[in-house]
Simulated assay, not measured.
Amino acid sequence: MDCLFCKIVSGDIPATRVYEDEQVLAFPDIHPQAPTHLLIIPKKHIRSHAEAAAGDKEMLGHLMFAAGELAREKKLDGGYRLVINTGPDGGQTVDHMHVHLLGGRPMHWPPG
């Protein structure tokens, strides 16, 4: 497989793992847009949120749970933003579903 994030999951590409369990992995974004900017990915390859199937429901919920755990760990008590970019028009640049956890500064609306 030629997926960047799958190579990170397998260990073929190094990353600073800040959270990992049997279903998900989290690591810092290489182009952070906030003082805290983590990517939380499923270990199972799912191309995008649009391609998640009924059998992925538990894992999708677990992604949100992991994001909350990380936000508490990073002490983002003032708030944070979770983002899932889906498809080219949604700004997705890596074809492996992932959640951005952004915090440590005020988030404005609209996001852009």
Rank of each mutant, 00 (worst) to 15 (best):
V24N: 03
F65V: 08
Q23L: 14
H62W: 02
E22C: 02
G11Q: 06
K57W: 14
V18E: 11
H45M: 03
F27Y: 10
S48V: 06
H45P: 01
D12W: 06
A34N: 08
P42S: 08
T16Y: 13
E20S: 02
I41Q: 04
L39H: 05
E20A: 13
I41H: 08
L39F: 04
P28Y: 14
H37A: 07
P32L: 07
P35G: 04
L25W: 02
D21P: 06
D21R: 06
R47V: 10
L60A: 04
H37K: 14
A71W: 03
F65C: 09
P35D: 13
E69L: 14
D21Y: 05
H62Y: 01
E58I: 13
M59L: 11
E51R: 02
H49W: 11
R17L: 05
I46A: 03
R17N: 07
A53T: 14
I13W: 05
A54H: 10
H62A: 03
H37L: 10
D12E: 15
E58G: 05
L25D: 00
R47N: 08
G55H: 12
E22I: 08
I30G: 06
L38Y: 07
D56H: 12
E22A: 09
G11Y: 07
L60Q: 01
H31M: 15
A71R: 15
K57E: 12
Q23S: 14
A26T: 09
K44T: 13
K57T: 13
T36D: 01
I13C: 07
A54L: 11
L70K: 03
E51M: 12
G68M: 04
E58K: 12
D56W: 01
D56E: 05
A67M: 09
A26L: 00
L63Q: 13
H31L: 07
H62F: 13
A52Q: 03
P14Y: 11
K43N: 01
A66Q: 09
D12I: 11
E20V: 01
A50G: 09
L25N: 05
M59F: 09
A71K: 12
H62P: 00
P32C: 14
H31A: 15
G61Q: 01
G11M: 05
A66N: 15
A50Q: 13
M59E: 03
T16Q: 10
Y19F: 14
P32G: 11
M64T: 10
K43W: 02
P14R: 13
